[in-house]
Amino acid sequence: MKFQNMIVLALIAVFISLPCVSAAEKDELTSEQIYEKRMDLYKKVETITNVPWHYLAAVDTYERGLRRARKDRSKEDGFISIYYSEEEWAGTFNPNKEDTHPLSIQMFGGVGLDGDGDGLAERTNDEDVLFTMAHFIEGYGFDEEDFRIALWEKYKRDQSVRIVHGHSLVYEKFDTLDLDEHAFPMPLNYNYSYKNTWGDRRGWGGRRIHEGTDIFAGYNVPIRATAYGRVEIKGWNKYGGWRIGIRDLDNIYHYYAHLSGFEKGIEEGSIVAPGDVIGYCGSSGYGKPGTQGKFPPHLHYGMYRDNGITEWSFDPYPSLKQWERKAYQDRKKKNKGSCKYLR
């Protein structure tokens, strides 16, 4: 064990520590620069521990979403969002909750480790935090099932395991962190209409509120994925009819309901990108499997945020308007660029 620790320390010493960046300096960086910094950290720790970078990125991304959704966690100062409480990091019975000495932290049963070789285990140091998480994952193994077991031991929640594992598969497929693009759920060249219907009353199946926005269109208009993500659910729901649920990298669940059918090849577990066709507009639902036509054809589009404990719906209308405006702007730029070659 001592020999293994010596190897780890030697490997750490080979790498030049990445410079610390203040919150103000981070705010001045472009998203591309931030992704580059994060990837440098993931790759460095991958080299030291052999834990795949997309495992580390998946956990970090999940915890970044938790920070956005929960009031008991502040926004991360650095590039890494993985969170450890003071007691977890320093040890429950450690009288010094801000302890940064690896030996005393270990003595009191804390998890904090020195990841950059400076002799300190700091809860606010990106490399220390990422190395601590990688060391934890490494203890269970390196294949997917080992990773899922490690996630269960970390979060003790099946849904959290599914979400983080899904994130890792998305990163593995696209081999990049730059996956922030979104798309409007219908192509612009089709006739459609919608307004803000989130929170309206619904009566079928019992009194409830409308947890989404209805986009009315003709039968079989293509329905598209709005974000990078993984298909969590596909099939029939008595309220939503033929429906698909996709989890994105912000831990948000995108719910597409009342479809007339699914795109060929889309299954539970499929990885999708913005604009990928996943199904077709219809009027299914409000009854047993196959029920159609109880209302005009439309897409019910819902968004649900997960905070590591529970999940709740929120109004998707502002996001839809934003993605629609961006789609029109992109089309205008594309048409303008094409026209110059016709002059």
Rank of each mutant, 00 (worst) to 15 (best):
S338G: 02
G241C: 08
K332W: 12
V277K: 09
G287M: 05
G229D: 05
Y239S: 15
I233Q: 13
S338T: 06
P297C: 12
K238Q: 11
Y255V: 11
G245E: 12
Y228L: 05
S283I: 12
S283E: 07
S283V: 10
E311D: 07
Y256T: 07
E268V: 15
Y255C: 07
V277Q: 06
G290L: 10
G235Y: 04
G282C: 11
G282H: 08
Y239M: 13
V272P: 01
S313L: 03
D250Q: 01
G240F: 04
E268R: 15
C281F: 05
M303I: 11
N335L: 14
L259Y: 01
G245N: 08
Y328N: 12
G265S: 08
S338F: 02
I278R: 01
Y317W: 12
W242F: 10
M303L: 11
D330Y: 04
A327G: 05
S283Y: 11
Y317C: 03
A227Q: 02
S313K: 04
Y228P: 01
G261K: 10
G275A: 06
W236G: 10
G279P: 04
V272F: 03
K294V: 03
G290F: 12
G279R: 09
Y328R: 15
P296R: 11
C281K: 03
F262H: 06
K294C: 06
S338M: 09
W242M: 12
F262D: 07
G293C: 02
V272I: 04
E267W: 14
L320C: 10
H254M: 02
G290N: 05
E232I: 13
G245I: 03
H298Q: 07
R243V: 02
F295D: 07
V277T: 15
Y301V: 08
E232T: 06
G240N: 08
H258G: 04
S283Q: 07
G302S: 09
Y255A: 11
P274R: 00
S283W: 14
I246C: 01
Q292M: 14
G285Q: 05
H254C: 04
I246Y: 00
K336R: 14
K321A: 09
P316S: 07
E311P: 00
I266T: 03
K234S: 06
I244V: 15
W312L: 04
H258I: 13
S313W: 08
Y239W: 12
I266M: 05
G240T: 03
Y255N: 11
I278V: 10
G290M: 10
G240H: 09
Y328F: 15
